[in-house]
Computed example of a mutant assay.
Amino acid sequence: MQQVKAVIARAKGAPVELVTINVPDPGPGEAVVRIQACGVCHTDLHYRDGGINDEFPFLLGHEASGIVEAVGDGVTDVVPGDFVVLNWRAVCGQCRACRRGDPHYCFNTHNAKQKMTLEDGTELSPALGIGAFAEKTLVAAGQCTKVDPSARPAAVGLLGCGVMAGIGAAINTGAVTPGKSVAVIGCGGVGVAAVAGSALAGASPIIAVDIDPAKLEAARRLGATHLVDSSRTDPITEIKRITAETYEGADGADVVIEAVGRPETWKQAFYGRDLAGVLVLVGVPTPEMTLPDLPLIDVFGRGGALKSSWYGDCLPSRDFPMLVDLYQQGRLDLDAFVTEEIGIADVEETFTKMHGPGAQPVLRSVVVL
């Protein structure tokens, strides 16, 4: 067992604390990873505020990269010294989805079996089964994906959640290809990543929709060809106008990615699609939200597909190395997602920037250890 510094949320809504925790030696199928960088995601804030569940205390942080320090019995895919990006869906290889060749839909993903604890023995709940606002963390070895060790840790660690969710929503779920038009509604970290994924796939036009000029500008830098401020103009009308200018007869975008997770923006996405277009929901709604009043004849009459994208429908072992290679080639600007680098003691201040009075638009603040 080792003792390391880590950031925990002890109670709902309480400020996070930097404390000493106990990290067990890895058991069978487990690995201890020395964290190099970890992004501050809105999901961590949701954990702190009790929006995920009430299994306090939480060990926060999950968008991370680091070096494998030790592995338990039976681990063969990674060895000590490997540079890895952590993921929160270690696939089982045995369930129906895995056996039918769809491991990205694994029904039985898993995390480390042992628990990290506070010094007094209180068990911690690691965010998304990772808990990486820590000098070291214990994970299932399948949560470690080996990537190019020369890549910048602060940038590639973001593939562990938000950036992968957005890129995957475009490429994997939406099946964006050259010649298709895309609209992305909501240009936070996930939405801007969906813009970047659409650009990587060769889509045109790529229409970014938001109410924040700074977020729209970030989308432009990552590949958006058109910007729509939906506080000033109707986004459905603008999406239809822009796509019709590019493709004769178009009546909306081929793929609309909703990255907000609200009924009203989902409805905009539904009607912003062209006939037989695809709507991808990657924004995460809260449990009480329901679909807007929508005539069933419109669902039938417009055709196409209404999809949800969970973690960008990614398979980390396939997608992480590929995207890191594209980053290393200069074809995917992951550095653009790193708004600032902070210390492990600065997480609470960063939460305030994200959600408190005078909240500031950032793509990602990244804890660097």
Rank of each mutant, 00 (worst) to 15 (best):
G174N: 05
S65P: 08
L296E: 12
Y271S: 01
S204G: 04
R232T: 11
V163F: 00
A196N: 03
I171K: 12
L279W: 02
A14C: 01
T43A: 01
A193V: 12
V68C: 08
A175D: 14
E135G: 09
V260A: 01
K353P: 00
K215P: 13
A127K: 03
A141V: 08
D120Y: 09
G303E: 05
G142F: 07
A14Y: 04
L118Y: 10
Q36F: 07
R220P: 11
D77G: 05
G261Y: 10
V280I: 03
P292D: 07
E341Q: 13
F337C: 07
Y311K: 01
K146W: 12
G27W: 01
Q360R: 14
A199W: 00
L60F: 00
V84I: 13
E248D: 13
A345M: 11
W88G: 13
D254C: 02
R331D: 14
A244C: 00
F58C: 08
G179N: 10
I342K: 01
R232Q: 15
G168P: 05
K146M: 07
V23A: 02
W266T: 14
E245K: 07
V75P: 03
E119Q: 11
D319I: 11
R220Y: 10
G343K: 14
G101D: 11
N22F: 04
I344F: 12
A151L: 00
V32G: 07
F107H: 09
G157E: 06
I171E: 07
V182S: 14
K215G: 06
L60Q: 02
P15N: 04
A132K: 05
T286W: 11
Y271F: 15
D274F: 06
D212Q: 14
N111D: 15
E30M: 03
D254T: 01
R232L: 15
L363Y: 00
V299L: 07
N87S: 15
Y247E: 10
I67Y: 09
F56S: 06
D229P: 09
S231W: 01
A203V: 08
T225Y: 04
N108P: 00
D333A: 13
M1D: 09
L306E: 10
P28D: 06
A203D: 06
V338Q: 06
N22C: 11
A37M: 13
A134S: 15
F58D: 01
G197S: 00
L369F: 15
T173W: 00
P153Q: 02
V367C: 13
A199N: 00
R48E: 06
A201N: 11
P287S: 12
K146C: 13
F351I: 01
P316I: 10
L45S: 08
V192Q: 07
D102C: 09
E30D: 07
M1S: 14
L86K: 06
T237A: 15
D293Y: 11
G343W: 06
V163N: 02
C38I: 04
S65T: 09
S365V: 01
L18S: 05
T233I: 09
A14R: 12
E245A: 13
A203K: 12
D44L: 02
V19K: 03
G272T: 05
F58Q: 03
I242D: 05
Y271G: 06
L227P: 12
M1T: 10
P361N: 10
D44S: 07
V19R: 10
R318W: 05
F270T: 03
D274V: 13
F320V: 10
P80I: 07
T233V: 15
T109S: 14
L128M: 15
A196T: 08
G356Q: 09
D25Y: 02
I206E: 05
